[in-house]
Amino acid sequence: MIKQRSLVIFYALIIYAVAQLIWWAYYLYSLQHNRLGMILGEGSMFVTVFVFGAISLHKTVNRESKLQEQKRNFLLSVTHELKSPLASIKILLQTIQKRDLTKVQILDFIDKSLLDIERLDDMVENMLLASKIDNRSYTFPKAKFNLSVLVDSIVNRLQVTKCDCNQQVIDAEIEPKIEITGDKFALTSVVTNLVENAIKYSSPCEVVAVKLFSKDDKVFLQVADHGIGIADAEKGRIFDKFYRVGSEDTRNTKGTGLGLYIVKEVLDKHEASIKVKDNRPAGSIFEVTFALT
């Protein structure tokens, strides 16, 4: 509604300005017939500048409107993302408090609560890191560390059982003893976001493949899923802040739109690249490339 009102006012001002221009041109021409060339020249220059400015302003208004809409969707998503695990933790703790459970049951409920807490922790870390990146207050301190151990620990933490047969969702092939120089905290966020995204956009029981290997003085991290896939038109936008694949009206997956934005920003700071490829027969492959120095 606000956008429509703004656009109505915007176009009304344009119409008014054009009408004023035509009236003044006619008025000047009626007074000085011998200056038709000057009037046309000045008028065409004014129209050119005016049209260019109007188009630029229109694009700015649309861009700002889309950004505001994305921020509203972000707030709604964050609220939902916070509410779901908090409700789960509350129910589990109340069950422990009110029921006479066995030690095994209590430990199982505690484990589930800790998983929800880790999920909340990941989301908070994402928001804090995104804020620091935007404010340019994060320095990305770099040191040499074992990337193989890092990826393996993240895979084990995010390994979930979504099937009745307790099938493990993540299939990992991790080459041992791969070391790189980088910001371990920020790169932890990169790996976590890529793997979580793959799980999130996959159906239950669909395997997510994570591969880490070195080749030709480069390190490759591949995360492949068999999910909904990404259209070619959207591949160039998925790393934009707040952007999420699909329509807000039809999207079923949760998320804040910060994960892939953080991934791209962090990798840029490490002079690493990321590309998105289609998986066959369905899904996507995210491939990160680090140059060994």
Rank of each mutant, 00 (worst) to 15 (best):
M1E: 13
L7R: 10
L7F: 15
V8Q: 15
V8C: 11
V18W: 09
Q20C: 15
I22V: 15
A25D: 13
S30C: 10
N34E: 15
N34W: 11
L36G: 10
G37R: 12
I39N: 07
I39P: 04
V47H: 07
V47W: 08
F50A: 04
F52N: 08
L57W: 14
K59P: 07
T60Q: 13
V61K: 09
L67F: 11
E69Q: 15
R72K: 12
L76Y: 10
L76M: 14
T79E: 12
P85K: 00
A87L: 14
I89C: 05
K90G: 11
L93E: 10
I96G: 10
Q97M: 11
K98V: 09
R99E: 15
R99N: 13
T102N: 12
T102I: 09
V104N: 13
L107T: 14
F109Y: 13
I117C: 14
I117D: 10
E125V: 09
E125S: 14
E125M: 13
N126T: 08
M127E: 03
L128Y: 10
L129Y: 02
N135V: 03
T139N: 05
T139L: 06
P141W: 02
P141I: 05
P141D: 08
F145T: 00
S153I: 02
V160N: 08
V169C: 04
I174A: 00
I178Y: 01
E179W: 07
T181S: 08
K184L: 03
F185P: 02
V190G: 03
N193V: 02
L194K: 01
Y201S: 07
S202C: 06
S202G: 06
S202L: 04
V207N: 10
V208I: 13
V210G: 00
L212S: 03
L212P: 03
D217I: 05
D217L: 13
A224T: 13
H226M: 07
D232L: 15
D232F: 11
R237L: 11
K241M: 11
E248Y: 15
D249F: 11
T253R: 05
T256L: 08
T256P: 01
K264D: 08
E265V: 01
E265G: 01
H270C: 00
A272R: 02
A272W: 01
I274L: 07
K275A: 09
K277P: 05
R280E: 07
A282L: 05
I285D: 04
F290V: 00
F290Y: 01
T293S: 11
